[in-house]
C-alpha cells in the first residue's frame, strides 16, 4: 500500500511540472529546423546559381541570345566567343538518344517481369536491374572508355568517342529508372482490362500492344522523361567518353561536348569571377532550368495518369 502511495506521488509531481509540453516543442522545433534547412538550401542554391549564371549577361555584357545560339566556343582568345549551342546540342542529343535506346528495352523488361515470368522476373531480373542503378557513374565511364570506345573505333570511322558512345553508356545508366516505372505501371493495371482483351480472342502481344501500352502511356512517358532528366544531368560518365571537343559533330562518332562535360572540364581551370568562369555558371543555370522543365513535365504526366 505504501508503495502505491509513492506511485501516486511520483505521478502527481510529473503532472505539476508538465514537462511534456516542453518536449512537444522540442520535437516540433527540431523537425521544423530540419525541413527549413532543406528548403533554405534549395532556395539559396537556385538563387546563387542563377545570380552567378546571370552575371555573364549583366556584368560581362555577353548577349544571352548569342550564348544560346552561338556555334563558336573560344573563351581564351583576345576577343572571346561564347557560343554554347554545341554543348546544348550535345546534352540533348546524347540524353534523347539514350532514352530512345533504353525505352524499348525497359518496356520489354517490364513486360517480362509482369506478364511473362513474374516469379523469375521479380526474384532475379528486377534485382539485377536495380543493381545497375547502384553502379557508380565513374565506373560506367571507365567501362565505356575501355570497352565501348575501342569497339566503336574498330567498327566505325572516327575515334570511337562521341555522341554514340555517350548515349550508349547513358542508356544503361537510365535503364533502371525506366524499367522500374514501367513495371509499376504494368502491375497496377486492373486484371479485368487484360481479361477483356483475351476474351475477345486477342493474343498476348495484341493485348500488350493495343490495350496495355496505350493505357499506361502517361506512366511510360514519365519514366522516359525521368530517364532523360537523369541522363541530361549526368556529368562524369559522359565526359569520359564523349571527347570534349566544343563543336557540333558531323557524325555520332565524332568528339563533342555536353553542358556537364564543359563545366566539369573548365571549372577548375578558370578564375572565379572572370568571364570565362561566369559563362560556365550560365551553363549550370541552363542545366538547372532544364531540371525545372523536367520536373514540371513529369508532374504534368503524372496528372494525366489514366488509372
Amino acid at each position: 500500500m505504501e508503495r502505491s502511495v509513492n506511485m501516486e506521488r511520483s505521478y502527481n509531481k510529473r503532472q505539476e511540472a508538465k514537462p511534456h509540453i516542453a518536449e512537444e516543442w522540442v520535437g516540433k522545433i527540431y523537425t521544423l529546423i530540419c525541413i527549413a534547412f532543406l528548403v533554405i538550401t534549395i532556395f539559396s542554391m537556385v538563387y546563387f546559381v542563377a545570380s552567378k549564371g546571370l552575371s555573364t549577361f549583366i556584368v560581362n555584357g555577353v548577349n544571352a541570345f548569342d550564348l544560346l545560339t552561338g556555334l563558336k566556343w573560344n573563351p581564351d582568345i583576345d576577343v572571346p566567343s561564347f557560343g554554347a549551342l554545341p554543348f546544348i546540342f550535345g546534352s540533348f542529343s546524347t540524353s534523347i538518344l539514350a532514352a530512345i535506346i533504353a525505352a524499348p528495352l525497359g518496356f520489354c523488361a517490364a513486360v517480362f517481369i509482369v506478364e511473362l515470368a513474374p516469379k523469375f522476373g521479380r526474384t532475379f531480373l528486377q534485382p539485377v536491374i536495380e543493381l545497375l542503378a547502384g553502379i557508380p557513374s565513374v565506373v560506367y565511364g571507365f567501362v565505356g572508355l575501355s570497352v565501348i570506345v575501342p569497339l566503336f573505333r574498330d567498327l566505325f570511322p572516327g575515334q570511337g568517342i562521341g555522341i554514340a558512345a555517350g548515349a550508349l553508356v547513358l542508356s544503361v545508366m537510365i535503364l533502371p529508372t525506366i524499367t522500374t516505372i514501367a513495371t509499376d505501371a504494368l502491375s497496377e493495371l486492373p486484371a479485368g482490362l487484360k481479361e477483356g482483351s483475351y476474351a475477345l480472342g486477342a493474343t498476348r502481344w495484341q493485348t500488350i500492344y493495343r490495350v496495355v501500352l496505350p493505357t499506361t502511356m502517361p506512366q511510360q512517358m514519365t519514366g522516359i522523361v525521368l530517364g532523360i532528366a537523369r541522363a541530361f544531368g549526368e556529368a562524369l560518365a559522359v565526359q569520359m567518353v564523349i571527347g570534349n571537343a566544343p563543336h557540333i559533330p558531323h557524325s555520332l562518332f565524332e568528339s563533342t561536348s555536353t553542358l556537364t562535360s564543359a563545366i566539369t572540364l573548365s571549372m577548375g581551370n578558370t578564375a572565379m569571377g572572370s568571364v570565362q568562369n561566369n559563362v560556365l555558371w550560365s551553363l549550370a543555370l541552363i542545366l538547372m532550368l532544364m531540371t525545372f522543365v523536367f520536373v514540371f513535365v513529369i508532374r504534368f504526366l503524372e496528372g494525366r495518369k489514366k488509372l
Binding site: R3, N6, M7, S10, Y11, K13, R14, Q15
Partner: peptide
C-alpha cells in the same frame, strides 16, 4: 514516461 523511474516500482506495477 509519466515519471515512474525506479525499477522496483515498475516491476511491482
Amino acid at each position: 514516461y509519466h515519471g515512474m523511474k525506479k525499477k522496483a516500482d515498475l516491476d511491482n506495477l
